[in-house]
């Protein structure tokens, strides 16, 4: 219990904790429609301190985050659509972004802490996810299973809760029930002609902090604690953040 805080602050923080859950869920549903514009326009702080990190590294500052997460993502969707329309003309007239894929990262195993000062919040999640699409240039639908962990920082700006930092840690990537991710990795490692591990991400946008910032599961490495759960804290600082402040 937070008895060191006055009752009014505790009530505000309880409401903030729920607001943060909604912001995080909004991310999931916007991302499910590949609507990066809505996500970054509506639920992100435009602060120079904002950051978005993945295995490939960390983008810092809103311009760089927008370029990597919106501009390049939309470009990928448009390129996909340009190829797809040659095969499936019924995609004509439809938003190319959700046509690309539904990337759904569910939120469970949440650990959420709101700062004593009520100005920020921190959360970690395990996210069992699926990425699926029906109309593809390969003319085969697909569903990938992508299990990740999230470390998320939020701040309250003018009464609205916004993302400040996101660190995405991909752990398991496989195809829905067609493969066994652990046995496949062992088979790869013991193959007399071993191949490199498949890349864990879709690409590598320009970053300020180069990766790798997280390694997916491998038989030969320890599970990483890249985004440790948040502890109760007073105010956001370099001891309580998923992105060190510069």
């Amino acid at each position: 219990m937070k008895e060191h805080l006055d009752l009014s602050r505790r009530i505000q923080n309880a409401a903030s904790s729920q607001e943060v859950e909604n912001v995080k869920a909004l991310h999931t549903y916007y991302h499910g429609r590949a609507d990066a514009t809505a996500e970054w326009a509506q639920i992100w702080s435009r602060s120079g301190d904002c950051s978005w990190a993945h295995a490939f590294g960390r983008m810092r500052g809103f311009d760089q985050v927008w370029y990597g997460s919106v501009t390049q993502y939309d470009q990928m969707a448009m390129q996909n659509w340009m190829e797809l329309v040659e095969i499936y003309p019924e995609v004509g007239g439809k938003d190319p972004r959700p046509i690309m894929e539904a990337s759904v990262h569910t939120l469970v195993t949440d650990v959420i802490e709101v700062a004593d000062d009520g100005l920020s919040a921190r959360a970690s999640f395990i996210t069992p996810g699926v990425i699926h699409s029906v109309l593809t240039t390969e003319q085969e639908k697909y569903c990938n299973v992508l299990w990740e962990r999230y470390g998320s920082d939020f701040i309250c700006e003018d009464g609205q809760w916004k993302y400040l930092h996101e660190h995405v840690c991909p752990d398991i990537l496989t195809r829905l029930d067609a493969l066994n991710w652990a046995a496949e990795d062992y088979a790869r490692l013991t193959d007399p002609d071993p191949k490199a591990a498949p890349p864990p991400t879709l690409g590598a946008p320009p970053v300020s902090d180069p990766g790798p910032m997280h390694h997916p599961y491998s038989v030969l490495s320890k599970p990483q604690d890249t985004v440790p759960w948040p502890e109760p804290y007073a105010t956001m600082d370099n001891d309580n953040t998923y992105t060190p402040f510069l």
Binding site: H132, L135, Q139, K141, Y142, C143, R175, L176, D177, A178
Partner: peptide
């Protein structure tokens, strides 16, 4: 529903539509 498919089967082998 977004999809349903049999466990242990390759979803990609289902007909697209």
């Amino acid at each position: 529903a977004d999809l349903n498919c049999e466990a242990g089967e390759n979803y990609s082998k289902q007909p697209v539509y």
